[in-house]
Amino acid sequence: MKKQNLLGAICLSLAASIWGGMYVVSKYVLDFIPPLTLVWLRYIIAYVLLFVILKVVQRKNKKTEVIKKKDWLLIVWIGFIGYFVSVSCQFIGTKLSDAHTGSLITSATPTFMVIFAWLLLKEKLTIRKVISMLLATIGVVTVIGWDSNLGTYMLGSIILVGAAITWALLSVYAKIASSRLSSLLVTTYGLLFAIIFTTPAMMWELQTHNIYYNSILIILGVVYLGVVSTAGAFYLWNKGMELMDAGIGSLFFFFQPIVGSFLGWLLLNEKLSSNFFIGGMLILVGVVIATFQKEFNQSIQFKKTSANKRV
Rank of each mutant, 00 (worst) to 15 (best):
A164E: 12
N149P: 05
K3H: 03
I18P: 00
G221R: 03
S306E: 13
I258H: 09
V24R: 05
K3F: 08
P34V: 02
G79V: 04
W72M: 07
S229D: 07
I176V: 15
N308M: 13
A246C: 14
N5G: 03
I278E: 01
A307Q: 09
E123I: 10
L104R: 10
I131A: 08
K271E: 14
T199R: 08
T152G: 08
T199L: 13
K303D: 10
T109L: 10
S273W: 07
W237N: 13
K271T: 15
L135R: 07
K124N: 12
K27P: 00
L160Y: 08
L192Q: 02
S179F: 06
L38A: 10
S157A: 14
K271W: 08
L135A: 12
T94N: 07
K124E: 15
L220F: 13
G280E: 11
I10Q: 01
V114D: 05
C11L: 01
L30W: 00
F112N: 12
L181E: 05
F253I: 14
F276D: 07
V222T: 07
G145I: 09
F51D: 08
I216M: 13
V57D: 03
R128F: 09
I115A: 14
L49E: 00
G20T: 00
L243N: 12
Q58E: 15
S17L: 03
M244P: 08
I159V: 15
T111Q: 07
S250P: 12
F112K: 09
S171F: 04
W118M: 14
L191V: 07
A9F: 04
Y43W: 00
F253C: 08
L268I: 09
V227K: 09
G264K: 07
I289V: 03
M22P: 00
C11Q: 02
Y173Q: 13
L243I: 09
